[in-house]
Design a protein around this nucleic acid. Sequence first.
DNA 1: CGGGTGATTGACTGACCAGTCAATCCAATC
DNA 2: GATTGGATTGACTGGTCAGTCAATCACCCG
Lengths: 207, 207
Amino acid sequence: MASTTRQQAAADKRRQILDAAVRVFARQGFHQCRVSDIADEAGVAYGLVYHYFDSKEEVLDTLFLERWDVLLAMIAELDAREELSPREKLYRIASFIFDSYRHDPELMKVIIVEVTRAANSFGLTHLTKIQEAYQGIARIVERAQEEGQFHTGVSAEFAALAFYGAVEQVLTAWIFEVLPHGEEDFDRAKEFVVETVCSGLDVGRTD
Amino acid sequence: MASTTRQQAAADKRRQILDAAVRVFARQGFHQCRVSDIADEAGVAYGLVYHYFDSKEEVLDTLFLERWDVLLAMIAELDAREELSPREKLYRIASFIFDSYRHDPELMKVIIVEVTRAANSFGLTHLTKIQEAYQGIARIVERAQEEGQFHTGVSAEFAALAFYGAVEQVLTAWIFEVLPHGEEDFDRAKEFVVETVCSGLDVGRTD
DNA sequence: CGGGTGATTGACTGACCAGTCAATCCAATC
DNA sequence: GATTGGATTGACTGGTCAGTCAATCACCCG
């Protein structure tokens, strides 16, 4: 177990750097911070960051993928659950995303602001990964349309984009404090987004 | 009128620089391009950019505000039009934005990618302006709720965010070619976004 | 014309910072 | 207690660019 201790210590240091990076990226932004800021925040020498990562970008990269892959797995799993209504599926996706923010606002801020909404070179690197999320949502909508639970007047791709766009926009509003967000707002937001996308704003629905 | 000619020439040069900046920003991105790229594209000396603008950012600034102020005026004007249904009002806002893209995709790409979705220092500078758009849309929704045309189960702010988020997401998908966009897709997009937000995806509506 | 004012030029400077690297440390192993 | 190799250090380098500025140009007015 001796070597395990060594490996464990190394893995801990790596994580320590990643955690520090989240705080620094959230506070200053990816482009505005220096690698030395991350090292300082982690209480580690400058060069060590380059021992564990090839570049500054790879640090952000790692943070994004760690979390995004969980989302993708979650969407895929949801798609297969025949017993759930499409509305319930969308509700769970919205829940997952909003709860991710509730649980770790700094990490979600970094992911949304520096990757998902970042149209610069970096955002493009992960375009495929981001698209996978849209496509997963679109598949859920499509299936609901085939089964007659959603009407077919709107293409599934558009619907997925609209749903995801609404979620991200609310999150962005929270991140930049354009919209207040107390503890109860998280659950309201889930309901609201799903309600809007599924039932719309018009009066005269059954619901 | 001699001095007018002089002034006119100067104004033309300024515009020439702005137009070049749109192309360069759209092609390379704000942070990725150098001021010399703008000057070269405009066929003008490096220093002249600084004769007409205080900084690289002021160039982007100017491009954004020129267009965004038109949008804000349009929303405000729409809000006052008693005879239009809320659905029609939202349709016109979506139309304005999508048509702006159709008419000048490079400019809209710059505005969306480098300002509206740019959460970095620059996006924050214009947060207030961007918020004004949300608030304008929210006012339209609110008014529709008061008059019983929209149900009150969703707060007007959330609805506005969802609507704008959906529009921006579709635009972003076009910009990054995640979604194809032939000439007929513009009109489809307007319908789809408004349909989704107003009537929702559920079956069993009157419409 | 001649002087003045604003337009135009582009070389240069100063600051910044990602990534490198040679040196040092230290824990595990024999 | 000597050896080895990964972990750790931080000074340094090389390249990039925004913004400055002194010089030059061209139009206009008296």
